[in-house]
Write a protein that binds this DNA or RNA. Sequence first.
DNA 1: TTGTACGCGTTATCAA
DNA 2: TTGATAACGCGTACAA
Lengths: 336, 336
Amino acid sequence: MNVRDISVNRPTVKDIANALNLSISTVSRALNKKGKLSPKTIKSIESKAKEMGYLPNYIAKSLRSNITYTVGVIIPDITNPIFPSYARGILDTAVKNGYQVHILNSDMDIEKERAALRSLLSKRVDGLILTSTNLSDKELSALRDKDIPFVVTRREIEVRNISYVDVNNFYGGYIAGEYLIERGRKKIAFIGSRFSGEPARKRLRGFIRAVERHNMIVDKKLIIEGETSIEGGYEAAKEAYKKGADSIFAYNDIMAIGALAFANDQGLKLPGDFSIIGFDDIYLSSLPFIKLTTIRQPMYYMGSKAFSVLFNLMASKESKVYKIWIKPELVIRATA
Amino acid sequence: MNVRDISVNRPTVKDIANALNLSISTVSRALNKKGKLSPKTIKSIESKAKEMGYLPNYIAKSLRSNITYTVGVIIPDITNPIFPSYARGILDTAVKNGYQVHILNSDMDIEKERAALRSLLSKRVDGLILTSTNLSDKELSALRDKDIPFVVTRREIEVRNISYVDVNNFYGGYIAGEYLIERGRKKIAFIGSRFSGEPARKRLRGFIRAVERHNMIVDKKLIIEGETSIEGGYEAAKEAYKKGADSIFAYNDIMAIGALAFANDQGLKLPGDFSIIGFDDIYLSSLPFIKLTTIRQPMYYMGSKAFSVLFNLMASKESKVYKIWIKPELVIRATA
DNA sequence: TTGTACGCGTTATCAA
DNA sequence: TTGATAACGCGTACAA
């Protein structure tokens, strides 16, 4: 069987036109409801199309129109628990607007990300969502100067004229600190990773601001580095505890859960003896065994918003710029 | 700015040809390393292409070749904890082979799934992976009769000539039962959902077989239905416990975790007083708070395998059929 | 109301 | 070794 023969199963406008003794343009117009056609012709074309199982060929449409109704999304790692609902937010909103989504993982590896970008650009996606991108400001500027609209998420951008959507990390850190202080905590440790970059720094700064607002100071010894993992959280918590901390604000829930494991092993009663507050509100955190008090990042909303912004960007000819900070919120459970 | 003007940023073979006073066919050949060309011309074309930032237009390539290097994947819900690593397995393997992936969610809703399928077909994907499809055998047959290769996962198919990849649910149920019996359990309950369909039935049958092999019988009262959720697992476990069960084999980890929550609330010591074994080995199950003994489904491998099978299907002109059962394995932790 | 003809960017065929 | 041309399926300006 030759590749060409598949037209048996994949009828084109031409096939419909031939079957009906009409011209392709008439068929095209009928199918796209454009121009004036006799209702009779329209009806016959529509029923014939249905009968033959016609599906428009978006490849051809795209070549013609320069629109692919496809967006590319680069995500560090879909198996990271914060990303599935983010991805779902993008997917749902895209589908609702007639778009499809190409997802590629970068693993925070700059070369992988560049390869992903080239691949997406070759596929002529209409727009891009770059999540936690490692691209330099220079590269982002260059991308901006091309004709393709894109949105950056989870990384605030100093470069002008680049749209982004991110959670307000500073505010999140602030309300976390505020809450712990209100609960009477005096020696709050921050555990985070040196490698988690700007978001971690923002959360820490917000936290420090909250502490200082209460005329307290943050003990630099209690700002502790660790791996962004359960084990890393465990070790960092151990260190914080040894240094006399009475509570922990963790960079993210994964580390907070590690800290919680340490507190359990230590036989500490939460939130009586000790308090732990995380950041993210991943699915895990709500489990009955964990019940982590945390700062929720509405990831589904962030994904949905990112697509909406991109959609606006793709639709308008003028180049607008959106800078959106999503407010995180405190979720009080059992650990603080 | 007109849409046409974007060629400033998106040079084509034609632009390169003009810049070099060559024909487009020469440029095309050079870029694709086909035919005999003078090394000089090749070099000049390659450097010009690089200079102009040329990226091949895959839309045009696809129209010409009828190959899109894109596959469509329908997944019930990417936020379901069993699916992210499955998706990652597909993505990684696809990228490794030069393919991109369109992911769509069906939410186990037949109409959504049909819409997703139409959309993917219109986009002319080269192949499909249907996960836990709800399409009828008839619809699958019809799809098979089209020219598009596809693989079904997480649903064994009675229809002949349809390739699928699934975990061996029967075997998984069998080793779960076997293990509990070996540990001296006599009154094992099975908790699952009526709605979880064929996989649940297979797991139950495997479990029953193991019990019968040991000349014991399964008490029908201990086959308990519940929602596929933590709460559902909790309630089902309560019922099982009331009815005198000394252990539970849960349809999946989520329910097992619910059962574990019940056991904790009840003050039962595991695996001394009571045993719980799950199915899936989702990320949660390995957490220090949970340490669930379970039957692991290698989801990343399943995704990777599904793409490999599809890749073979797409590559070969003859219509092969693959039926692949992946062996699940027992993961012993703290609950059984 | 319907038809003709062209071009989107590419590659394969045939010719030079 | 290189060039001219047709074709993939579609939508649209222009003609009838």
